[in-house]
């Protein structure tokens, strides 16, 4: 079963990657990032059951990842709101202050 889970995780990850790269709305980009993190979590938990050394560590790790992702989502949304207040847009194309 492991390859199926891994393949599914790979599909999710790549869809998330495409969304993170191609989408212009920052909220959607954030969502795509969450999708990628979820794909990683799926891998972790799949390995936790079907890996060479089955162990609960994988689940613990996924819990940690979820926590970090939640913190990241909170901060990111806060940043986006602040940015929107300053710039009036959440289009990533307009976030090009690094050029200057």
């Amino acid at each position: 079963m492991l390859p199926s889970y891994l393949t599914l995780a790979a599909i999710l990850f790549c869809i998330g990657l495409y969304g993170a790269l191609a989408k212009r709305n920052a909220i959607i980009v954030l969502l795509s990032l969450e999708l990628m993190l979820n794909a990683v979590n799926l891998n972790l938990i799949a390995f936790s059951k079907y890996g060479v050394v089955p162990s609960l560590t994988g689940q613990i790790f996924s819990v940690f990842t979820i926590t970090v992702a939640a913190a990241e989502a909170a901060v990111a949304v806060a940043v986006l709101i602040a940015l929107f207040r300053a710039r009036g847009t959440v289009d990533v194309e307009h976030m090009n202050a690094m050029r200057r």
Partner: peptide, 14 residues
């Protein structure tokens, strides 16, 4: 390439 947009940068990185 150096347009300051994170999207382009991350695309290049990928």
């Amino acid at each position: 390439l150096q347009n300051g947009s994170i999207g382009t940068y991350s695309l290049a990185a990928v």
